[in-house]
């Protein structure tokens, strides 16, 4: 029986008080609740403070390039569909540099859990605006305030009929852990956008700011109703809804490939007789 100790405890490079600590804890709880052994899990991350998270637990890890974790995760899942593949990276990585991959992953509906640490700022490069930073937010790189409108990942994902769309808050660990567990169990792309404070560079969207606003969706909320999900997805202000906002049962991308029903590609031999037949057709 897998326990939280199997996932280990490591020293981190994060600032004291960072929201990442709570997210890491919620992830470990979700993995244990999902009864996954460390070797059955592959974390893929990009670059940023959030992307370091997979180094601080026991699992298979591919820590790739900034913005490119979804394509790596897609390739890995298509090579070995038995792996539980989790992408863990920040708002800049997934919504900025990797924006095109975000859209494509939703369209494919690859069975990957996409965990986005969203603190509305670039932390590792010291406080520039991210795609989710509010308009007017002043940084050293945007001294006149941010001119662009913030990206709403939840609304975009719901608009595109993503398979599973949720929002969590790092200050509510058990709630978040449950979302991650359900995201892992979902067959298809599961987006979990996690709001978290950046104690060093975001003095506006603080822990208290989020705590005051984040409010779990009521139990009677029906996440399979796309139109009400679109409405909830656009709510952002004094009240920020958290929970599973939308879900459907679109077929997972890898299920389109009959060969993957037989397991990992590495275990499948080259069919020499078939290859010979194919080559002979060139005569």
């Amino acid at each position: 029986m897998v326990t939280i100790d199997d996932y280990g405890e490591y020293e981190t490079a994060w600032c004291p008080g960072c929201g990442n600590f709570s997210i890491l804890k919620a992830v470990k709880q979700a993995l244990v609740a999902s009864r996954l052994e460390p070797h059955q899990v592959l974390f893929v991350s990009g670059i940023g403070q959030a992307a370091k998270a997979p180094h601080y637990l026991n699992a298979n890890v591919f820590n790739g390039l900034h913005g490119r974790s979804l394509p790596v995760a897609t390739g890995a899942k298509l090579a070995n569909p038995k792996l539980a593949v989790i992408v863990e990276s920040g708002d800049g990585c997934n919504y900025g540099e990797g924006g095109n991959h975000f859209l494509a992953a939703i369209r494919r509906n690859i069975d990957v859990t996409l965990l986005v640490h969203n603190n509305q700022v670039y932390g590792l490069t010291k406080g520039q605006a991210s795609p989710t930073t509010a308009e007017g937010f002043v940084t050293k790189a945007q001294p006149e305030g941010v001119f662009s409108m913030p990206f709403n990942p939840i609304a975009v994902a719901v608009a595109m009929h993503a398979g599973f769309v949720a929002r969590g808050f790092s200050g509510m660990i058990d709630h978040l852990s449950n979302l991650i567990q359900q995201g892992i169990a979902h067959r298809g792309l599961a987006l979990i956008d996690v709001l978290q404070p950046c104690v060093s560079f975001n003095k506006v969207n603080t822990f208290a700011w989020y705590k005051e606003r984040c409010e779990p969706l009521p139990p009677e909320y029906n996440p399979t109703d796309w139109q009400s999900a679109m409405k909830i997805a656009c709510e952002w202000g004094d009240k920020i809804p958290i929970g599973i906002i939308y879900r459907n049962d679109r077929i997972a991308f890898e299920e389109h490939f009959p060969v993957l029903a037989q397991g990992p590609l590495v275990e499948q031999d080259v069919d020499g007789a078939m290859l010979k037949e194919i080559i002979e057709a060139y005569v």
Binding site: G64, V72, T74, G75, A76, K77, A79, N80, L265, V266
Partner: peptide, 20 residues
């Protein structure tokens, strides 16, 4: 068919890492 060449090479790397 990937969404762009950046995705194509990164997908190939992910697949190769996982044994294909």
């Amino acid at each position: 068919q990937a969404e762009d060449e950046i995705a194509a090479i990164n997908m190939a790397i992910g697949a190769s890492f996982a044994g294909a």
